[in-house]
């Protein structure tokens, strides 16, 4: 079988699990990256403390691609500013554009996200925009030069699962870029389901960070994502709307 990879910014990835690094400590991040087999990990850009704190990068293997986010940005201009700073930090040109005006549900601002994507793609960034799953916005993001589209499953950090299932399916069917489902996925089974639907990858943070055993949950997600991907590639068996169909041959010897 040909190796199953997907492309982002001209780079090949075989792991379809993008791991977030928020809300847990560096030792656990290190263990989770390993168990997840993750090749991409998200980070945030924040003001440095002057009290010589440890560097998170020391806990992430060199070969893992860093995906800084623009969290905290409330408009395109702020997202562009954060993205430029993240590139200056010297760990590549990937960026997850994340723009929120709303602080209760943390829903992304799709229009500002399209603007920021356009600016950053022109500046040579590999732009992965986080968005509310809307087909028109996704098409605008394609035209703006996005490398992938990251629709939300449910509000960030909610662990509520695939609340936007139908709309994510539309994006998977209609958009010719990797669809990476981000935010709200709370359980491995939900990650598996979205991969069965044909998503290119899953991003998860809170589901892992709030689990009882973080590295073990990272492993559970890895397996679920691989299972869902294999199921998608296999082609799911058909659903029979009414009645059953025997799985065993009926030609029998009991009644002739």
């Amino acid at each position: 079988m040909e190796q199953d990879v997907f492309m982002l910014g001209g780079q090949e990835f075989s792991s379809r699990f993008i791991l977030g690094s928020g809300k847990y400590n560096v030792e656990l991040i290190q263990a989770a990256v390993k168990q997840a087999g993750a090749e991409i990990i998200t980070l945030a850009v924040r003001r440095a403390n002057s009290a010589g704190e440890g560097n998170i990068l020391d806990y992430i293997p060199q070969e893992v691609t860093l995906l800084p986010n623009t969290s905290g940005a409330r408009n395109a201009q702020e997202a562009v500013r954060i993205a430029r700073l993240s590139r200056e930090l010297g760990c590549g040109n990937f960026v997850k554009v994340e723009i929120m005006r709303d602080s209760k549900y943390l829903l992304p601002d799709n229009a500002e996200t399209v603007s920021a994507t356009e600016i950053l793609a022109k500046e040579g960034f590999v732009v992965l925009p986080y968005m509310y799953p809307d087909l028109n916005t996704a098409r605008d993001l394609v035209n703006a030069g996005a490398a992938a589209v990251m629709p939300l499953a449910a509000p960030i950090g909610s662990n509520k699962g695939l609340a936007t299932r139908e709309f994510i399916q539309i994006l998977i069917d209609e958009i010719d870029l990797p669809i990476i489902v981000d935010a709200g996925i709370g359980r491995p089974s939900q990650a598996c389901e979205v991969m069965e639907m044909g998503a290119a990858a899953v991003m998860a943070n809170t589901a892992i960070a709030t689990a009882g055993n973080i590295p073990q949950m990272a492993l559970a997600f890895k397996k679920a994502i691989e299972a869902g991907r294999a199921a998608y590639l296999s082609g799911l068996g058909r659903v029979r709307e009414k009645g059953g169909e025997a799985s065993s041959p009926l030609t029998g010897f009991l009644r002739d």
């Binding site: 980070l43 945030a44 003001r47 440095a48 500013r81 960030i156």
Partner: peptide, 29 residues
């Protein structure tokens, strides 16, 4: 609001009215 390239750290002189941000990577989703 303008990034200072690393190569310019030694030659960029700060003024009283300057606004400086020093940032780094942290855990985040």
């Amino acid at each position: 609001m303008e990034i200072v390239p690393k190569a310019a750290y030694d030659t960029t002189v700060l003024k009283e009215e300057d606004v400086i941000e020093v940032v780094r990577f942290m855990g985040g989703g």
